[in-house]
Design a protein around this nucleic acid. Structure first.
Ligand SMILES: [Mn+2]
Ligand SMILES: [Mn+2]
Ligand SMILES: [Mn+2]
Ligand SMILES: [Mn+2]
Lengths: 217, 217
DNA sequence: TTTTAAATTTAGGGTAACCTAAATAACAAC
DNA sequence: GTTGTTATTTAGGTTACCCTAAATTTAAAA
């Protein structure tokens, strides 16, 4: 498996390809490549048994594809923990580094690293590391966009993609922060929040708010 | 730069391409690829400014190529130290892992890792990590084949290549061991050693003994 | 100095992973 | 249900990195 193919599997997983058909365009957008390239790659991933692909509809991961993706995500997140906890990297710097390291990590190395880090449960962006916690996180967490108006919640996870991390950092939204959704305007795609710590009002895009997960307090 | 190209630069450095012209065949052997592929790659490395290539003669690294190779080797050795010292890997297992990790390591990551490891001087195979020490090691170390008969020496470095590490491990020769060359037969390509610790007699190939470096005690 | 052997290059191919432009299919709107 | 928009596929092309077979150059031997 090439790093390229591995990244396709990971993106597929992150876009819900474990349970739903993911359209080519979403993959093309996320990886910043052209749609024909995605078509080609999907055929290749089907041939290798990682993906089930329905032309014009989209792709789903097979069980093997799902397992492979989970292993990659675990490696990615373990490196992020190491980089932050031991090497003193800033939370917003580690994602691109882990995006590379994940492809150069044997199962043996991942296991030893995990033990060295004393079996951390979450990456610095709130993503679960163990398979069990990953499953649990899928069902238990709520998108910020689904939070009840007026009810305070705590930010538990940020989908880690360089530009997203930048966006939320710019709006002073970080893992662990308490926020309360005070308003929603679907027409304008706006979400208004009250930040629990600073008591300031924050406005963010509803579309982008989908990449923030929260839990009830 | 691709991992592939990076490995070519590293091999070139290891084969003495900093000072001498390295024939294509040596590179082909070391990387287990065909000679035409090497020719092609050398032309590409010339175009990128890493190498000076004389057709039918061989390749030398430019200053930029040399610097690049040294950076890669430093990253490689830092990872080896980390894997052995912190993750508990066996000395003979870390080379293949580092061979991958070196290509996924930013300058920032290498610097932080080096500080975290408290600026180690040598990798587990005795290779120098800092640029200065690398230079010094070039001139100060002696091939085992050049050791004076009857004079005890200490093994200071093993050229790290999977099969070589295996070979020396199989013959109970390790970094730090004291040995004395007791006999040489160039016709039979044999070198006889007395192992300082066990007092046993060891026979190894002279050709392969070139990959062992020693220092006088 | 011719002959032979070894190293190298040239020629011709192959696959992976990308691209653009054009054709087609699916879906929504009128 | 025709029309228009968007997503997708097909067609054709590029670069990187690998190959084998054949031609060529260099170096060694006779
Ligand atoms: Mn990440
Ligand atoms: Mn990646
Ligand atoms: Mn090594
Ligand atoms: Mn390598």
């Amino acid at each position: 498996m090439s790093p390229t193919k591995e990244d396709y599997l990971k993106i597929l997983f992150e876009l819900g390809g474990r349970t739903e058909q993911v359209p080519n365009k979403e993959i093309a957008n996320r990886l910043s490549i052209s749609p024909p390239t995605v078509t080609e790659m999907m055929n290749s991933l089907v041939k290798a048994g990682w993906v089930v692909y329905t032309p014009y509809k989209g792709s789903k991961l097979t069980q093997e594809g799902t397992d492979y993706a989970k292993k990659l995500i675990r490696k990615h997140r373990l490196w992020e923990v190491f980089l932050v906890k031991h090497l003193g990297f800033n939370i917003n710097e580690v994602h691109p580094e882990a995006e590379l390291l994940e492809h150069s990590t044997s199962a043996e190395l991942a296991d030893r690293l995990e033990a060295y880090l004393e079996f951390p449960e979450y990456c610095p962006h709130g993503g679960a590391i163990s398979t069990e916690l990953m499953e649990e996180q899928e069902v238990s967490t709520v998108h910020l966009t689904e939070a009840v108006l007026g009810e305070p919640v705590r930010i538990s996870r940020i989908v880690d993609e360089d530009k997203l991390l930048q966006y939320f950092e710019n709006h002073d939204l970080r893992i662990g922060d308490r926020v309360t959704v005070t308003g929603r305007d679907s027409g304008l795609d706006l979400l208004t929040l009250n930040h629990g710590t600073t008591d300031k009002e924050i406005q963010i895009s509803q579309t982008i708010a989908q990449y923030l997960f929260v839990e009830h307090i």
